[in-house]
């Protein structure tokens, strides 16, 4: 049977294989994504991001269990960094989510960033779509540990949760831009530590100062994920945000922006590939480089020549 049909019928092995095909750009990747497309758009996609060691995996593990308790099925995409030097990766997010492994209602997949710098792996968005089509109600995207500007998660998630911990210093001013701008919900994890009040106050002040008055005022919640504290309140906030997204039309707006972006990315990818194929086959690329080195031509002129040729 066709892999997509198997996937839609609930085969976990088919889902796993489809993810591999998409992640590795196998030949069938395009047709798989095309065939599952009509079945996507149902899941609530929750991005979990924050600095390394903030407790993203532990929090994801606990939230997944809560949702399972409500009878919802869960998909998790956990991203860890690929070594820029060796191309390999150690993907260790399962360590904190081992108990979920034996639950057939949870599907957890680890991904290496493979050169992507925005906090996600290259194909995370597509993998989320596969899990969505598979029928997962809730899909978590756990990003790599991020610093200030890895904000790709908002391109993939409906609700973005930024996990912070007290004691990272009084640097909240410094990180005001970037990841602090993308949170729909802020979680202060390890909230049994010193400095929680201060971080809380700083976050609230920052959110109050937000010049852009949006319809949703981000909320700040406190958790001690390892002990399960604060989860009920966090779940409530997640549910509130989802309701807000749907009733305010924000969901529609975000998804349409995302769809547009995805289309442009795809278009870009295919055009680049076509152009590259064309100019490498006959060795044109090398002669272009030679002309540049000899200062016979400028790169701008060469690009114009190539485009004029292609778009004729």
């Amino acid at each position: 049977m066709d892999i997509v049909q198997e996937l839609l019928r609930g085969s976990r092995r088919a889902l796993a294989r489809a993810i591999t095909a998409v992640e590795n750009d196998y030949e069938e990747a395009g047709s798989i994504l095309q065939d599952i497309y009509p079945f996507t758009g149902r899941a609530h996609v929750i991005g979990i991001t924050g600095p390394p060691g903030a407790g993203k995996s532990t929090l994801t593990d606990k939230l997944a269990k809560e949702y399972r308790g409500q009878g919802k099925t869960v998909g998790i995409v956990a991203v860890d960094p690929t070594s820029p030097f060796f191309g390999g990766a150690i993907l260790g997010d399962r360590i904190r989510m081992n108990e979920l492994t034996m639950d057939p209602g949870v599907f957890l997949r680890s991904m290496g960033t493979r050169g992507s710098l925005g906090g996600l792996a290259r194909k995370t968005v597509e993998v989320v779509k596969l899990m969505d089509a598979f029928g997962k109600d809730i899909i978590f995207i756990e990003t790599v540990g991020v610093g200030q500007s890895e904000v790709d998660v908002i391109k993939a998630a409906d609700t973005t949760v930024v996990v912070l911990v007290p004691g990272l210093g009084d640097d909240i001013q410094a990180i005001k831009a970037g990841i602090l701008e993308i949170g729909d919900i802020f979680v202060i994890n390890k909230a049994d530590r010193d400095g929680v009040e201060r971080l809380n106050t700083e976050l609230e002040m920052m959110l109050d100062l937000n010049p852009e008055k949006t319809l949703w005022r981000p909320v700040v919640k406190r958790t001690v994920a390892s002990r399960g504290e604060g989860l009920v309140e966090l779940l409530e906030a997640l549910e509130n945000h989802r309701t807000f997204l749907v009733t305010s039309g924000e969901q529609q707006r975000r998804r349409s922006a995302r769809t547009k972006n995805e289309l442009l990315v795809l278009l870009n990818e295919h055009i680049s590939k076509k152009v590259l194929e064309k100019i490498t086959v006959g060795g044109e690329l090398d002669s272009f480089v030679e002309r540049l080195e000899n200062h016979q031509q400028t790169p701008y002129a060469i690009v114009n020549t190539i485009l004029a040729e292609m778009l004729r």
Binding site: A89, L91, G92, G112
Partner: peptide, 16 residues
């Protein structure tokens, strides 16, 4: 071993 495999360019999923 996990580290050596990573350095060889493999993606290593370590489960603990």
């Amino acid at each position: 071993v996990a580290r050596a495999l990573r350095d060889a360019g493999f993606e290593v999923i370590y489960t603990g």
